[in-house]
Structures are given as structure tokens and as C-alpha cells.
């Protein structure tokens, strides 16, 4: 398999057990103007290096988790539950 993701519940699992949820982006408040929302919908940092991102363990415990990954090597640096680790 391509690489392993450490699920906080299930341990190290192949990446194909997970669904990639994209980089973490801050959701604007409902009072923000349309251009701010358009940036939230579409603009991405798409970092070449460490990136905070969402993963869903679809073929395991079926929970969403946060991970930090080096996108140049696919090394998962850390994982945790939302609310327990910084988004």
C-alpha cells in the first residue's frame, strides 16, 4: 500500500481504508460577506510540506480524524480527534 495512517482508535492502517477530507480550512461566520465565503469554498494553501488535514476512517471505526502530513513524502507526523488536537 501507499502509506499508513495512524487512526487514534484503530492504530496504523493502510491509507486505502480512509477517505481524504482535504486540508483544514477555517469556516467563516455567517455574518461574513460573500467574497470571504468564496475564498473558504475554493481557495486552498495546498502546501508542499506539512499540512493539517481531515481523514475519515471509512473502512474502520467510521470516525473523522485530524492528521498532520508531509505532502512531499506522505509521512503522517501526528493524528488526533477533532476537539482534542488543534485544528
Amino acid at each position: 500500500m501507499a502509506f499508513l495512517v495512524r487512526c487514534p482508535n484503530c492504530g496504523d492502517r493502510g491509507v486505502y481504508e480512509f477517505r481524504f477530507g482535504g486540508e483544514v480550512v477555517r469556516r467563516p461566520s455567517t455574518s461574513e460577506a460573500a467574497p470571504v465565503w468564496m475564498k473558504y469554498f475554493y481557495a486552498r494553501r495546498n502546501a508542499a510540506g506539512n499540512q493539517r488535514e481531515w481523514w475519515y476512517h471509512s473502512l474502520g471505526c467510521r470516525r473523522w480524524l485530524l492528521a498532520e502530513r508531509d505532502t512531499t513524502t506522505n509521512e503522517i507526523l501526528s493524528t488526533g480527534w477533532p476537539g482534542e488536537v488543534q485544528a
Binding site: F20, T71, T72
Partner: peptide
């Protein structure tokens, strides 16, 4: 395309 974003150009058996 692969099911996750990356800048790695390694190919995979999957």
C-alpha cells in the same frame, strides 16, 4: 487521480 492529494511522485501497487 489518486484518492488523496500529494506532491510525491512515487507510484503505488494499489
Amino acid at each position: 487521480v489518486d484518492p488523496y492529494s500529494t506532491y510525491s511522485q512515487r507510484s503505488t501497487l494499489d
